[in-house]
Design a protein around this nucleic acid. Structure first.
Lengths: 270, 270
DNA sequence: ACCAATTTGTCCGTATGTATG
DNA sequence: TCATACATACGGACAAATTGG
């Protein structure tokens, strides 16, 4: 059994090479991969726009000069990547990879790599602070209304930990969206998908958990309304420190790795 | 041509449904997808560990009771997701999704969604500040040595913008790794893949660009050696503000969307 | 160094179910 | 209702690469 080269790959590819070997082993790309790359390239360059029909499998096979089975293999890869999808009529359409899909993949990868709650906590702290800071500057009345609706729903669901943790996730997702920064929104999502569901655990184990969470959310909303960055960031920090205290009071250790269990519940694979 | 439902999906799925329709349309999952999910589940739950052999296509077909072509389609999807990969012997092995793969896909998605350099800049600011802050606390002599080596290489390559921007990317990737927080490392990577390559442009257009970049990197390294958080964060902020000035002096506008061009050069779809 | 077995990559032909007109 | 077009899946076939004797 040969060890797979699972190169973690940070840093531009400077692969070590034995000096005795002058050339890399030549490898012919598989036909199905060439098909996939050709179609992907059309989308990446914009020649194929999202929503446009790709063509039938048979036609693609004819164009590429390969068998239909080969086309199908390429299609499967593209489908997984989110670059093509099937319409209601089962035909092929070009499509843009959806954020949510990518985020949940990242989350699952983090679970498999056994990241700890501490890593999750520290990263979330940085990302949520940035979100609220930017949101303060650019938040719209519509987003304020959505946040208020979220808080209202949470107030009504104070005794339902499951629902409450869902609403907590949503609240912070809304905040990120309110920041008007999609890069930030995207960056925080994978961690958020693992972090915020723990609110359920905390609400179950810590009596005042739900109350403190709601109190923080209300304060955050008020600070946003007043566009008071200082106040908002203070409350966000307090909110997250609260989470940490609750997590530990629930008998958990920050240095535990995130459980595999989450990987299953995450994103029912399409 | 029907509009594809590209649901952006923030907020827990509360899909609108016409009241007249009592049931969702029933849909049978495709066989190849069941194959893929079955194998993916084995890996997610840990029953199949990374590096373990999956079995031959023919054998899988026999076990699942489907045709080999169907197995192959499922394999293609899993391959794209990073859950299985081919060994040097072309056999199938379970595998963990690699960060770099996921990151570059995120980057490409951001390009396709036409995020702006401003979004990239603001997010990078937050993420790099957090990285350097944590790195200050936990950096190891080994990582300090790697950073020093990077700076040395950059000093030697002062007149080569391409090489210089590669080294800039690497420097910040190393910083993130030095933070000891893989969640943070992962969160910053997609933005980093788009942000730091712009150093090439800046070095070409702004005469003092390379010098200032190196100066900042050296100062960051010194601050890390001294474990001086205050100094380190100050320099990081200065470094990024410098980037912004350089970007604008190069005649670019922060509110431009990131070019499609990048999507092509990004991550040759291995 | 040669050979046999195994396995992948690709291709072909066909049957079936379903959606559209 | 019928006919067409298409995706899904199956079975079989062969060349090339790899492995193991």
């Amino acid at each position: 059994m040969k060890p797979l080269p699972l190169s973690s790959s940070a840093g531009t590819g400077l692969a070590m090479r034995a000096v005795s070997e002058r050339f890399d082993k030549i490898q012919v790309p598989a036909a199905y991969r060439l098909v996939a790359e050709a179609i992907e390239r059309e989308i990446l360059t914009g020649r194929l726009r999202a929503g446009e029909a790709i063509g039938t499998e048979a036609e693609l096979g004819r164009q590429f000069g390969v068998n239909r089975s080969t086309v199908r293999e390429g299609i499967r890869a593209l489908e997984e990547g989110g670059y093509v999808s099937r319409g209601p009529d089962r035909r092929l359409y070009a499509s843009l990879p959806r954020y949510s899909r990518l985020s949940s993949r990242m989350s699952r990868a983090m679970v498999l790599h056994e990241v700890t709650f501490r890593e999750l906590y520290d990263a979330t702290m940085a990302l949520e602070m940035a979100s609220i800071e930017h949101a303060c500057a650019v938040i719209t009345p519509e987003m304020l209304a959505e946040l208020a609706a979220n808080i209202e729903a949470a107030t009504a669901a104070q005794d339902d930990p499951v629902r409450l943790s869902e609403l907590d996730s949503d609240f912070h997702a809304l905040l990120a969206r309110a920041s008007g920064n999609r890069v930030l929104e995207l960056a925080r999502e994978p961690a958020g998908l693992l972090f915020f569901p723990t609110a359920e655990l905390i609400c179950r184990r810590v009596p005042e958990g739900a109350r403190r969470m709601l109190e923080a959310h209300r304060a955050l909303l008020e600070a946003l309304r007043a566009r008071d960055v200082k106040l908002a960031t203070t409350w966000m920090r307090r909110h997250l420190v609260d989470w940490r205290k609750g997590f530990e009071r629930a008998g958990r250790d920050l240095d535990e790795p995130v459980e595999r269990v989450y990987a299953r519940t995450l994103a029912p694979p399409a």
